[in-house]
Design a protein around this nucleic acid. Sequence first.
DNA 1: AGAGAACTCTTTACAGCGTAAAGTAACGTG
DNA 2: CACGTTACTTTACGCTGTAAAGAGTTCTCT
Lengths: 286, 286
Amino acid sequence: MVTYVGQGDPARTMALLWGSAPAPPRRGPRPGLSLEEIVRAAIDIADAEGLAEVSMRAVAARFGRTAMALYTYVPGKEELLDLMVDRVLADADRDLPYAQGWRAAATAGAHASWEFHVRHPWLLQISATRSVLGPHELDSYEAQSRVFAGLGLSGLDITRLVGTLHTFVRGAAASMAEARAAERVTGISETDWWTTRAGYLESMVTSPEYRARYPTITSFEPTAHDVPDPDAPYLEQQARDTFTEGLAVVLDGMAAFIAARGAAGPGSVPAVPPAAESAAQGSAAP
Amino acid sequence: MVTYVGQGDPARTMALLWGSAPAPPRRGPRPGLSLEEIVRAAIDIADAEGLAEVSMRAVAARFGRTAMALYTYVPGKEELLDLMVDRVLADADRDLPYAQGWRAAATAGAHASWEFHVRHPWLLQISATRSVLGPHELDSYEAQSRVFAGLGLSGLDITRLVGTLHTFVRGAAASMAEARAAERVTGISETDWWTTRAGYLESMVTSPEYRARYPTITSFEPTAHDVPDPDAPYLEQQARDTFTEGLAVVLDGMAAFIAARGAAGPGSVPAVPPAAESAAQGSAAP
DNA sequence: AGAGAACTCTTTACAGCGTAAAGTAACGTG
DNA sequence: CACGTTACTTTACGCTGTAAAGAGTTCTCT
């Protein structure tokens, strides 16, 4: 119910993101926890109970500690959220079928990303544009950019295509995630939620007054506002279909853009040779 | 920094949204406030100071009352947020140039909606998919749907096109809003924020290790990661351009969809005659 | 070996949040 | 004038993130 939008101290966050495991302290008691497991516990809670349940006290309780114990490992909650974002992206699927052409790769990537966001809906609640710039986020960005490499596009072109696709996927995933969260969050089942409103909407479609105010939407097929079948969640299916159909539309637009712009001129981004696709995945501080 | 995602009791909310002003009480002291001005005050705070500053105490303080006084008018904070959403949509621009064709109308509508969301960025933080279904939200939905009426599309087609466009606009507006909020929220200027990260990124582009891990994005023109000119906010301009360019791409895709699907068959949604465009805007409970 | 620095973790505390419960004061009707 | 209704306040509770101070453990340096 309550979520963060801000962001922690960038320097500290970057150090935590990119720094290899810090040297173990030379004095004092051994650390009973690690940054890694704290971040994982926070992700577990967010996945299972929602971002609202991720409190410093709740995370610490998973280790039998008090909230303040976490401040030994993390500067504050905002930094913890930053770390959660990058860490969870490590599990995102990044094996895209680049060899099958950009459209197949983009479709696969969009579907993978959509499902990933639906699986970790709290990602949608944390600011996306102010990117965390962690290693795994860059992995993801690299994988998506590679889809459009070798088509004669500039880096800026690719940045925008990836941005557009990302924006669309996140928006569609948000519809899905919120359709799913509807019942859990409000304690009202999807059917109940819909039926309480249906009474108002029904009278609307038939009332001449409302047909005058809303001529277009009241002329839609009535099924669009029917009470959903509880076994086949209406909002969920709607969200899924809107994503699939919308994706095709967006990709059609990109096809036109690539056809018009792509000419392999100077400054265009070259494709990654297939041999290099499984490049080193090691990480070290820069 | 903290925002709500849940939603209030739907029945109560619907009554408040659609109910005309309730009959004044027959006994007891006169109400010193009204629902209307409470909602407006909350919107003022959200616009000026961000959604995080909209607390029951803060809203009440604008009227010299305590937080609990608001509960005479509103069941709780979540319902207040629902009301804010629908109320602010009353001010959205809805004069679209339908006569100039769907693409012109869609472009105008998208730009208006984008600017509206940038002006009221807190809208992006409140759940969008679980729509409030208030009169003004329906006005907006009607205006956007009308863009695609008369093209031979079904209601479901139109719903999805509108959904795709809406998703895209919100995502792009989110980029813009967060670029703007960056400084205010974190207390760090955009330039500072970027330069602290630039050190890490710079070494990345030159390091062979990172060129191997991120071959595509490290081959982009270096300007993409340059420190922005403080006078011409880099992130803002980037967000604006991505919106404009992305919109063209999305609309190209829609053009292809309409060309393929639009055949004015049975079940297709007819255009609204221009005469009816300035229809009655009065509202009454259904 | 002993002192002290360094380190983890706890305890306590504070200001803020939404809101439940109870009380006070004002008002219109019988 | 008394009563019931209503607007609003006061108090309180449990929750949040985190500052400050202290307890306890472990290593290093003299």
